[in-house]
Design a protein around this nucleic acid. Sequence first.
DNA 1: GCAATATTTAGAAATTTGTCTAAATATCTA
DNA 2: TAGATATTTAGACAAATTTCTAAATATTGC
Lengths: 95, 95
Amino acid sequence: MKQQEVFRALADPTRRAILKRLQGGAMSAGELGAAFDITPASLSHHFAVLKQADLVRTERRGQYIVYSLNSTVVEDLARMVLDLFPSGGARGGKR
Amino acid sequence: MKQQEVFRALADPTRRAILKRLQGGAMSAGELGAAFDITPASLSHHFAVLKQADLVRTERRGQYIVYSLNSTVVEDLARMVLDLFPSGGARGGKR
DNA sequence: GCAATATTTAGAAATTTGTCTAAATATCTA
DNA sequence: TAGATATTTAGACAAATTTCTAAATATTGC
């Protein structure tokens, strides 16, 4: 897993909002972008960053390109975060 | 908790390395910086970002300023991350 | 108080990032 | 095939970020 790509991807609020929005289920780029006040081109850029970090998956469905969350990453992601703190190894403290 | 500050802080590899290094215990700025090939001024900048995100604490000890991990944030941090994914509420899937 | 050490602040330069417009590519439908 | 819709790519530009050097601040010990 590309740690740097992932953290970088999460650093932008628009991208986090995109991930949030995808919790509701897969969505086309246009549908997804309707919630944001930036151009499709800018959106596309954000999608690319998320994809590079392997946080989302894409599938062309006819005219549309459908985005979905890559949920398998969540575990790695959680590990990466916890790994930044002590006692994060085996069932961290405080649990 | 300032979500944006935290994610932004974690986006830089040097800052993540600093956090990692602090896992070994509290350390003065100089000691901490010895591991990196950047000037004290640049280091200081990174410290400021980490502090703003409330990820580290500082305490002056004589001439030195000692940095330590703010471990209490780990739970919030984990929550923020998991919150970006579905089924993140109660003991997510795949566990 | 003064010199030495530790760290931060200020200001500038280089790089990266987010956004835009314009153009390109892909698919659908008439 | 042509036109309409959906999305991405290319190139430019402004804003943010990382880094540097030089100077400022804080503390220790003589």
